[in-house]
């Protein structure tokens, strides 16, 4: 069958709401874009373990420690799930990790900010996972079967993460003056990065009509950002914290919050690798990979020996 005919059928299938599965024909641009998005998402999950892992040994109660462990375990599980889903597009996890380590592949800009106090663990769950959910619930309606199904599952766990983060913030906001200050400080530092992690504004990132038609991208960055802000501002007010945006106001006519100007220079600097923790995050990942090499080699050598025994027997 000619490619133009295949393309026509591919697009018709998507338009009718059916999913594309790994063995189906797909245009090369579709495959490439998905590999880029899905691996970036997988990398974000495992790099995201680092800022949160930073507080596991210092979690302030046994309950908080258990919740944080469970949450970070979820992130690792998401990473594994997403790498496997990406592999259905004909790439190897090993190669994807190589791209992460050489800086060729990106991960979410947000994880290049440091977790300085316990309140940052609350802020990450509330804001970062909150923003991620906005994006991922949209992606769950995407056209690529393995990715869409992964999103459904991941979103369920993310909403638990989001709630535990908000619960930490609520506890702090209702606590001692020192705790409240800690919570406000975390909100001040994480608000703008969380707003930015949803990607450049629509004027700077024109949505490819094709990616929308192929249901690779489901909504514009600004639309997702607006939903996140509309949902989060009342949550901050409810626990008595102040969003660090002096221009923020509610527009009665539109029913939406309007926010002040976003410092996109900062965003692009972080994306380029110049954020506060880019170097450290990457170094940690590369070191873990390097230190683990002899372990992986041993596992392979052991498996090969057992395989040989089987043949002999």
């Amino acid at each position: 069958m000619e490619d133009s005919k295949k393309l026509e059928q591919f697009e018709a299938k998507i338009a009718s709401g059916q999913k594309i599965e790994p063995k189906d024909w797909m245009p090369e641009a579709y495959r490439k874009q998905l590999i880029r998005m899905m691996s970036q998402h997988a990398h974000s999950e495992i790099v995201g373990m680092l800022p949160e892992g930073n507080w596991i040994t210092r979690a302030p109660s046994l309950r908080r420690k258990a919740i944080l462990l469970a949450k970070v375990q979820d992130e690792a599980g998401h990473g594994l799930y997403l790498y496997s889903a990406t592999e259905t597009l004909g790439v190897d996890r090993k190669d994807l990790l190589e791209q992460l380590h050489t800086g060729k592949a990106k991960y979410s800009s947000i994880f290049n900010y440091p977790t300085l106090t316990w309140a940052d663990i609350g802020a990450i769950g509330w804001l970062v996972d909150g923003a991620a959910i906005m994006n991922q619930t949209a992606l769950a309606r995407g056209s690529y079967g393995p990715y869409a199904r992964a999103m459904v599952r991941i979103c369920k766990e993310e909403s638990f993460h989001n709630r535990q983060g908000y619960e930490i913030m609520m506890q702090l906001a209702q606590g001692t003056p020192e705790q409240k200050e800690m919570a406000q400080d975390a909100l001040n530092r994480w608000w703008w990065p969380a707003i930015m992690m949803l990607g450049p504004g629509d004027d700077q990132s024109p949505n490819s009509e094709q990616l929308m038609r192929w249901k690779v991208k489901m909504e514009s960055n600004d639309a997702i950002r607006q939903r996140f802000i509309d949902r989060t501002v009342p949550q901050a007010e409810f626990i008595g914290l102040k969003i660090p945006d002096k221009d923020l106001k509610f527009n009665e006519a539109t029913g939406h919050y309007e926010h002040g100007p976003i410092n996109w220079d900062e965003f692009f600097e972080v994306i380029k690798g110049n954020g506060p923790c880019n170097a450290k995050r990457l170094k940690d990942r590369i070191e873990a990979d390097k230190k683990g090499r002899w372990v992986r080699e041993a596992a392979l050598a052991y498996a090969a020996k057992r395989e040989k025994e089987k043949v002999v027997a």
Binding site: I46, M49, L50, G53, I56, L69, V72, A76, G79, L80, Y83, D284, E287, A288, K291, G292, R293, V295, R296
Partner: peptide
């Protein structure tokens, strides 16, 4: 956490 020899 985050530093293991392999994700699994």
């Amino acid at each position: 956490c985050g530093h293991g020899p392999i994700l699994e």
